[in-house]
Amino acid sequence: MRQAVIGSILAGFLVSLAPAAVLAGPIDRACNSSPRKQKSPALCACIQAVADQSLTRREQRQAARFFRDPHRAQEMRQSSSADNKRFWLRYRAFGAQAEQRCS
């Protein structure tokens, strides 16, 4: 029991010392590294919070690539793949939620 308590305290301490970039999700990291002038750490964190609620981790990584290569989003949108179509619908819903909550 004592070891479990010490372990949880130590884990909490280590998390508090970890740099924010390590704890940030893929959307947050991509947003903060994008060249867009409108970005801010608070905005990127908000968008990541919405992504955490609406996209899987895999989908978040896929969406983060759009920040580096916007043309990839266009290719995904026009794809005839059923998987890509499902992703695109979820991505659009995520975008609408992020716009509503984070603006």
Rank of each mutant, 00 (worst) to 15 (best):
P35S: 05
E75Y: 07
G12K: 03
G95R: 14
D69A: 00
K39A: 11
A20R: 05
Q48N: 07
R72F: 11
R86H: 07
R77S: 04
R65D: 01
A82S: 10
P26L: 04
S16P: 05
G7S: 14
C44K: 13
Q3D: 06
R58H: 07
A42I: 08
Q62T: 05
E99P: 14
D69R: 00
K39G: 12
R61S: 08
Q62M: 09
G7P: 14
Q48V: 06
S33H: 06
C46P: 01
R58T: 09
M1P: 11
G12I: 04
S40Y: 08
E99S: 15
L23R: 09
A73P: 14
N84S: 13
C44Y: 06
C44M: 10
F13I: 06
Q100T: 14
G25P: 05
E75P: 08
C46E: 01
F67K: 03
A30S: 01
E75T: 10
A49T: 09
D69H: 00
F67S: 06
A42L: 05
K37L: 05
I9R: 01
Q100W: 13
A82C: 06
V50A: 07
A4F: 15
R68G: 10
A51W: 07
G7T: 15
N32H: 05
G25Q: 08
H71F: 15
A96R: 14
L14V: 04
A49E: 04
Q97E: 08
Q97F: 06
V22A: 13
R92Q: 14
P35I: 03
R29S: 03
Q78N: 11
